[in-house]
Computed example of a mutant assay.
Amino acid sequence: MDDRAPGRRRLVLLTAGLCVGLVAWNNVVVPSLPGRPASAVTANAAATALLLATARWVGLSWDELGLGRRRLPAGARWGGVCAALVLTAYAVALGTPVLRPLLADARVEDLSGAQVAVRALVRVPLGTVVWEEVAFRGVLLAAACRVLPLPAATALSCAVFGLWHVRPALSGLAANGVASGLPGTGTAVLLTCLWTAAAGLLFTWLRLRSGSLLAPALLHLATNSLGVLAAAAASRAG
């Protein structure tokens, strides 16, 4: 009997379980939690720790997960450059009246300064970025790469990342009144999922190119947290 068979079975089960579990987590479980959004941050942080422990138990190394210390400098360089580009893009949009409406988000218009800060500095980093990067570009990608060729593993991770955003897309559409009716809403959700899958491909490329999860995490953090701050600034600028 091949001694590697039990380990491979665990990796296959982990990969398959993550594909189903992650989609259900963000589209069914988290939206049903009482006490959201605070409870969602706590749940996601706990899920991050549990997922990392599971990854180590099935034999994935820190380097495979993108968390090896020796690749942190490369991750910081790649992620820092990308974050700077995002900051520049938001600054240009805020400073250009014709572009400023593109930053609008009804979900932050009525938030106080303190609420905006909590969302940008706590909810996004801990409840979104760390959890999503560990789950998708960390554990799922690493496990899938053990049982699939790299292109297939990458495609799988990006596809699940796109489906992860179905419920958030519906919430965003409802808050901003972007689409109405089944055809319009369905098209908007599909485009959102395709867009986030494409973003997942960029995040994955950064993870693989730098060898560190820090690179996509910094880009993800800059995009989401600075996006919240930019949307709040745009709404106050009028």
Rank of each mutant, 00 (worst) to 15 (best):
81 V>P: 00
81 V>E: 04
82 C>T: 11
84 A>E: 13
87 L>E: 08
90 Y>E: 07
93 A>Q: 05
94 L>W: 06
95 G>K: 02
95 G>P: 01
96 T>M: 05
97 P>R: 07
98 V>D: 11
98 V>A: 14
99 L>A: 11
100 R>C: 04
101 P>C: 10
102 L>V: 06
102 L>A: 13
102 L>I: 04
104 A>T: 14
104 A>E: 14
104 A>G: 15
105 D>V: 08
105 D>I: 02
106 A>G: 05
108 V>Y: 00
109 E>P: 00
109 E>A: 07
111 L>I: 13
111 L>N: 09
112 S>T: 15
115 Q>M: 12
115 Q>D: 15
117 A>K: 03
117 A>C: 08
117 A>F: 09
119 R>N: 06
123 R>G: 02
123 R>W: 04
125 P>R: 13
125 P>V: 13
125 P>T: 14
126 L>Q: 09
128 T>K: 06
130 V>N: 08
130 V>F: 13
130 V>G: 12
130 V>E: 12
130 V>K: 10
131 W>T: 09
132 E>N: 12
133 E>V: 02
134 V>H: 01
135 A>M: 10
136 F>N: 12
137 R>P: 07
137 R>C: 11
137 R>D: 04
137 R>S: 13
138 G>T: 13
139 V>W: 04
140 L>S: 06
141 L>Q: 13
142 A>N: 03
142 A>H: 03
143 A>N: 01
143 A>L: 05
143 A>W: 01
144 A>K: 00
145 C>P: 01
146 R>L: 07
147 V>T: 06
147 V>L: 00
152 A>Q: 12
153 A>Y: 00
155 A>W: 13
155 A>Q: 10
156 L>A: 07
158 C>R: 02
159 A>N: 08
161 F>G: 00
161 F>Y: 07
166 V>P: 05
168 P>Q: 09
169 A>E: 04
171 S>C: 07
173 L>I: 15
176 N>P: 02
177 G>I: 15
177 G>V: 15
179 A>H: 05
182 L>H: 09
183 P>C: 11
184 G>F: 04
186 G>R: 14
188 A>Y: 03
188 A>D: 09
189 V>H: 05
189 V>D: 12
191 L>H: 01
192 T>N: 03
193 C>D: 02
193 C>K: 03
194 L>I: 08
195 W>P: 00
195 W>K: 10
197 A>P: 00
197 A>V: 08
198 A>D: 12
200 G>T: 08
202 L>F: 06
202 L>H: 04
202 L>E: 04
206 L>S: 09
206 L>R: 07
206 L>P: 06
208 L>N: 01
208 L>M: 04
211 G>A: 14
211 G>T: 07
212 S>Y: 00
